[in-house]
Amino acid sequence: MKLLVKDAPHIRSNDSVRKIMIDVLIALLPAVIGAAIFFGWYALFLCAIGAVVAELVEWFIVRVLRKQKDFMPDLSAAVTGLLLAMNLPPTAPWWLLLIGILVAISVAKQAFGGIGQNIFNPALVGRVFLLISFPTLMTRWINPVQFFSTTPWDAISSATPLGILKQQGFSKAISAFSYTDLFLGNIGGCIGETSTLLLIIGFLYLWYRGRVNPVIPASYIGTVFLFASVMYFVNPEKFGSPLFHILTGGLFLGALFMATDMVTSPMTLRGQAIFGLGCGITTMVIRYFAGYPEGVSLAILLMNAVTPLIDRAFKPRVFGEVKS
């Protein structure tokens, strides 16, 4: 009997990609339920078909086009489809979601070789593609509606808090929405981004399960808070309060569930802190000085591109080597 010794590290784990993705889906469930309460059954419908169709698209690409007969779905596509649906306005037609899923799965994920190989977060690539291609459909907002409303278009059209801040100033924005509404999610916005409370509950579950750590979210949200605090003292009416900025838009959805993507974020803790810092600064620069009132998606994608450089700059020391 031969004893085969392989290279270190000798680590055994019962974890799998499927188990991790199941935990992510469970963590997103509170925000999905909140979306159904705030925006009606159609929001729930979009979330459901987003997850299902994304799995079907990935299965077709891998099994039929790439002819990988041993492929077993790991639910990572379902997470991508669900996150993309949560990043759409409640008025988005179903076919718009399908286009976004095709781009996210085929271009942003499978074109790079599948899970673990993609450079950019697939859901954000799909969202930005839709925002550029269909700007009108991607910026049609409504006030919260009842669950049994027949269609989301029965609701009254509205602007998001960040949109009001951009166009009419902070006084108008804060008079239209209380901080309680901003925290609970009783405001207009994308399907899954409005409720800070429900997103935090989901993230705490992931943290408890050991799937994520709080370095990137803390660095990201903390940077946004500090940046907004400085600008608030410069011109409070134009730039808005720091609390307003962290409770509005897609900051918590992006910081908690997309910037923390294991594949597209740095591996070391120092690198993750730099990643969150870059996301926060870029987000606020876009919000304050660009034409678009929100900057989370673009900020995370930009930092995804920088992730390899961050990993190289902050790679851990190798112990036991002899310096030449």
Rank of each mutant, 00 (worst) to 15 (best):
M1S: 12
V5E: 13
P9I: 06
S13N: 12
K19P: 00
L28Q: 01
F38E: 06
A43H: 03
A43F: 09
F45A: 10
I49F: 12
G50M: 13
F71R: 13
F71K: 10
D74G: 14
A77W: 02
M86A: 10
M86Y: 05
P90T: 08
P93H: 06
W94R: 00
L96P: 00
I105L: 04
A108L: 08
Q110Y: 02
F112E: 07
F112I: 02
G113K: 08
F120I: 03
N121H: 13
P122C: 13
V125G: 01
T139P: 01
R140P: 00
W141R: 12
I142T: 11
N143I: 04
P144L: 08
F147T: 14
F148E: 10
P152H: 11
P152D: 08
P152K: 03
L162G: 02
I164S: 01
L165H: 04
Q168S: 14
S171A: 15
A173C: 13
S175G: 11
D181R: 07
F183A: 15
F183G: 08
F183Y: 12
F183L: 13
N186L: 14
G188V: 08
E193T: 13
L197P: 00
L197T: 05
G202R: 01
W207F: 15
R209Q: 14
N213R: 15
V215A: 14
V215D: 05
A218T: 15
S219C: 11
Y220C: 04
I221V: 15
T223I: 03
P236I: 13
E237Y: 00
G240E: 05
L251E: 00
L253N: 08
G254Y: 05
A255K: 11
D261V: 11
D261N: 12
P266T: 11
A273P: 00
I274R: 06
G276F: 05
G276W: 01
G276K: 01
G280W: 03
R287E: 04
G291T: 15
I300E: 04
L301D: 05
V306F: 12
T307C: 05
D311T: 06
D311V: 02
R312H: 14
R312M: 10
F314M: 11
G320R: 06
